[in-house]
Design a protein around this nucleic acid. Structure first.
Length: 906
RNA sequence: GCCCAGGUGGUGGAAUUGGUAGACACGUUGGACUUAAAAUCCAAUGGCCAUCUAACGGCCGUGCGGGUUCAAGUCCCGCCCUGGGUACCA
């Protein structure tokens, strides 16, 4: 038995590829182009775990396949290297984030290299590299210098902004500033005290920060914003043509949250004000029994009556102290307070009380609602809590019912004067027409999407390239002075009051005005982590360009990205932001296509499988899994390297940590069995499996094929090495097709038989088709079957083996290179064409039909493929095996599907 | 609550357009080789029944209940469960 020495082979070929620059991106004008991209990683200190490469392996197979199919392939890799962990590490240790980031990147690259990926490393980009963020800053300035033209629905240069006449200079300046795509606003932001920074809405999940899970509070602050809301419609419409998973499209649609309804003004009695509300159900207007303002609504202080003042103030103070988490707690009962004032329903002139409650959000719609407790569950709950009247105006069956919840559906209009009996959907149109005719309001579209809060009070990010001058307000850093380099500071900590750490770099902050040279100060906020990843895929087309972010011709060649593979967790973050930037760049004529990523695939998350030991409380004794119920125990995570199939290596466990040296155990069947649980793979859960370990034991080719073999790319699953032996055995079997027991090469030059050709070409067809539809798990199976069959036939024919090596090359590239060389070829197999199947070898002249009676399979019969269906029918009916089931009845009909099935219906 | 994805042997999973369900692999069992173990190779392996002298068989079966069809894992209706996203969005 000859040995498959994967370690030697893999090291050898990785070096070869490096030396020969085998995977330099080809830009042959005669060939078609294909851009296949991974979501570039944040280089964390933990390195890669076996989950990371899943998508990378898939894209690498595609990249190698497309190259072999004759495409120019762009398959780059880079690092999203600005980010919070490096900065927090710096705060703890004083080590400069650039340094740790650099170390981490080295480690990542090393780990990636070992897996044999065919990246063009000459095109590597790092978002924290000044040569890169120069262009991130440049794009920001383009947004700063643009406005959104509502007529043309596109961004245009700010110099083309029509300015209303009659404004003085200051007013003109303000007008312009208010229309920029990047603008400053004083708004209630998500302030995270623990991180010392503001967060975007997309970064706040359930009231706590997405990173770290720290509480987030609302706080008014002056911030730079990006006008993503202007693009809401285009972001929505653009989704239609994209080949993306439906779930991601749906998430983005929901996040943008376009809804149709009406804005209606409710005059306030005794005040010269009206409350403007937004509603999607103007058809329920006869059911309005009260109004609610958000606590932050500007009218609150104007309309609160003297008697109610104390109560209102008290309520405002309590709500402002609440975190978003507390405010969004759905289980709590509704709170609120009466303002003392009344509004008039403009349709039926009813006088209704105006309340304040924190269930109405200042950030959505107009910050005020017309409350219809009969038709809205939240209003219903509020009405019950404060004993307000409930009127049903929409009914499923036209009858008034005893409501114990709101009826939110559509149906017949009741209790609505002359409109009774209409269907609610028709009434919606009717009432909007009336509202517009009587100038009480107008039809309106609303979005959940908010503008993007773009500033962070952090050190490790792109400085915002703006200068605050004394005379000319805020001005852009001139283009030829980009990049604005991140200054050195002594202390990376943000301040309590929301000042960026950059404010402490006084030499850097104090600068002069680009307009007149007078003293000025730099903007000290930095950009959020997402900035760099909004456009990195463009830079890969032309990473060295010093004149522009990328050459037009090169962008034309490579955009849009043909295949983009990455995690679904970026559905409404990176993937939405990048589309937004891309559309701005498109409007400004910088990119040639209006969407960045044509096809998107989400690879499933590979989870870890944690092991637990059960410590009996207040002792140093551990009890085995199945006996733990007899004791009071606390489970502790055990490093999975100390377990094998859930059996704990007791001695290793004792040596693992000093306090366990004298640990005692309650065993079952002489063993300590650990509990297990599927969790996210992470350092803290001690369940991280590193690809390095697997590569060391089985080789990169085995790991690559095994991760594909595990199941469909899109599916998540816990990591397990059960079955990796099967893949390893397959590669060894493949190796042994070429070698005899002594390790001698045994290849025959004889002509392959028809059977051998058929097996081979069937497999080529199947694998080719499966790669095209990204079904990489079935590719592996098909190749296993092929090798099994050829091994059984003892086929060692050169012509067959040459094809097989090319076929397996995208999956197991090192092994393929080695065998390709053994077969006497000088070139790298990576430069060979993917095999083409020959139709003639696949032709069959007969087919074994499954023959069924009433849909139940009863016999198999072989017929020539060109035999007439009538004749097949006759032979089937004559066959003994079928007669047995038909009996003496006359068949009703016989269905013959040529090449598929015969079914006799009795 | 709402939206999305999914539910197939002991396990991971296959079945691309409705056409032989369980490919391929793991595991398990038995056998060969071996002083022994490991490794390797061979065979069996959805459940139940029949048979076990050999050859052949039968019924059930893709979360549950209905339906369409000559034919349903696949299509339709209703439900249950799991995973993910989202949440006072008016």
């Amino acid at each position: 038995m000859s040995e498959y020495r994967f370690r030697e082979i893999e090291a050898k070929w990785q070096q070869y590829w490096r030396q020969h620059q085998t995977f330099r991106t080809a830009e042959d004008p005669e060939r078609s182009n294909y851009y296949v991209l991974d979501m570039f990683p944040y280089p964390s200190g933990a390195g890669l775990h076996v989950g990371h490469p899943l998508g990378y392996i898939a894209t690498d197979i595609i990249a190698r396949y497309k190259r072999a199919k004759g495409f120019n392939v762009l398959h780059p890799m880079g690092f999203d290297s600005f980010g919070l962990p490096a900065e927090q590490y710096a705060i703890k240790t004083g080590q400069h984030p650039a340094k740790t980031t650099d170390t981490n990147i080295k480690r990542f690259k090393q780990q990636l290299e070992v897996l044999g990926f065919s990246y063009d490393w000459d095109r590597e980009v790092r978002t924290s590299d000044p040569d890169y963020y120069r262009w991130t800053q440049w794009i920001f300035l383009r947004m700063f210098n643009s406005y959104f033209d509502q007529q043309q629905k596109k961004a245009r240069d700010i110099s083309e902004l029509p300015i209303p006449s009659g404004l003085n200079n200051q007013e003109k300046q303000d007008y312009i500033n208010q229309h920029r795509l990047a603008y400053q606003a004083e708004i209630a932001v998500n302030w995270c005290p623990a991180l010392g920074t503001v967060l975007a809405n997309e970064e706040v999940v359930g009231g706590v920060s997405e990173r770290g899970g720290h509480p987030v509070v609302r706080k008014p602050m002056r911030q730079w914003m990006l006008r993503i809301t202007a693009y809401a419609d285009r972001l929505l419409e653009g989704l239609e043509q994209l080949d993306w998973p439906e779930s991601i499209k749906t998430s983005q649609r929901n996040w943008i949250g376009r809804s149709y309804g009406a804005e209606i003004n409710f005059p306030i009695s005794d005040f010269n004000h009206a409350i403007k509300v937004y509603t999607t159900r103007p058809d329920t207007i006869f059911g309005v029994t009260y109004m609610v303002l958000a606590p932050e609504h500007p009218l609150v202080e104007k309309i609160t009556t003297t008697e109610q003042q104390a109560q209102v103030n008290h309520y405002l103070v309590t709500t402002s102290k609440k975190s978003d988490l507390e405010r969004s707690d759905l289980d709590k009962t509704k709170t609120g307070v009466f303002t003392g004032s009344y509004a008039i329903n403009p349709i039926n002139q009813q006088k209704i009380p105006i309340w304040i409650s924190d269930y109405v959000l200042i950030s959505y719609g107009t910050g005020a609602v017309m409350a219809v407790p009969g038709g809205d569950q939240r209003d219903f709950e509020f009405a019950v809590a404060f004993d307000l009247p409930i009127i049903q105006v929409v009914s499923e069956n036209g009858e008034e019912e005893d409501l114990d919840t709101a009826y939110e559906g559509h149906g017949t209009i009741i209790n609505s004067g002359e409109y009774n009996g209409l269907h609610s959907k028709d009434f919606t149109k009717v009432i909007i027409e009336r509202i517009e005719k009587e100038a009480l309001g107008k039809a309106a579209v609303n979005y959940k999407l908010r503008d993007w809060i773009f500033t962070r009070q952090r050190y490790w990010g792109e400085p915002i390239p703006l200068i605050h001058t004394q005379e000319d307000g805020i001005v852009a850093v001139p283009e030829d002075q980009l990049p604005v380099i991140l200054p050195e500071v002594d202390d990376y900590k943000p301040t309590q009051d929301g000042q960026s750490p950059l404010a402490k770099a006084e030499d850097w902050v104090n600068t002069s005005s680009p307009v007149d040279g007078t003293p000025a100060k730099r903007e000290t906020n930095t950009m959020p982590q997402w900035a760099g990843s909004c456009w990195y895929y463009l830079r890969f087309a032309d990473p060295e360009n010093q004149q522009q972010l990328a050459d037009q011709e090169k962008l034309k060649r490579w955009s849009p990205v043909d295949l983009y593979v990455g995690g679904a967790e970026h559905a409404v973050l990176h993937l939405l932001y990048a589309r937004f930037w891309h559309k701005v760049l498109y409007d400004l004529g910088i990119v040639p296509h209006h969407e960045p990523f044509q096809k998107l695939v989400n690879q499933g998350m590979i989870q870890g499988r944690s092991n637990f030991a059960y410590r009996i409380q207040d002792t140093n004794t551990f009890v085995s899994y199945n006996l733990r119920k007899d004791y009071k125990t606390t489970p502790i995570h055990v490093d999975i390297s100390l377990c094998r199939n859930d059996v704990l290596d007791v001695e290793a466990f004792k040596k693992w940590q000093p306090d366990l040296a004298d640990a005692e155990f309650v065993l079952e069947d002489g063993q300590y069995i650990c509990g297990s649980e599927v969790e996210k793979m992470s350092k803290s859960k001690l369940n991280v499996v590193s690809p390095d370990d697997i590569v060391n034991r089985y080789g990169a080719d085995t790991l690559r094929m095994y991760e594909m073999f595990l199941g469909p790319l899109e599916q998540g699953k816990p990591w397990s090495t059960h079955g990796i032996d099967g893949v390893f055995k397959f590669l060894r079997k493949f190796w042994n097709l070429f070698h005899d027991e002594l390790g001698n090469l045994v290849i025959e030059d004889a002509e392959p038989t028809a059977e051998e050709l058929k097996i081979t070409h069937q497999t080529i067809k199947k694998v080719g088709d499966d790669i095209e539809r990204l079904s990489l798990n079935t590719c592996v199976s098909s190749m296993m079957i092929c090798v099994n069959e050829l091994t059984a036939l003892k086929c060692r024919k050169r012509a067959i083996l040459l094809e097989l090596v090319k076929l397996i090359a995208p999956f197991a590239p090192h092994l393929a290179e080695e065998l390709w060389q053994i077969l006497g070829n000088e070139n790298s197999v990576s430069l060979e064409a993917f095999p083409q199947y020959q139709e003639e070898y696949l032709k069959e002249d007969s087919y074994e039909y499954p023959v069924s009676v009433n849909g139940k399979m009863r016999a198999k019969m072989t017929f020539a493929l060109d035999l007439a269906p009538k004749q097949i029918e006759q032979e089937v009916l004559a066959a003994e095996a079928i007669k047995k089931w038909v009996g003496d009845k006359t068949p009703k009909k016989v269905i013959v599907v040529p090449g598929k099935i015969v079914n006799v219906v009795v």
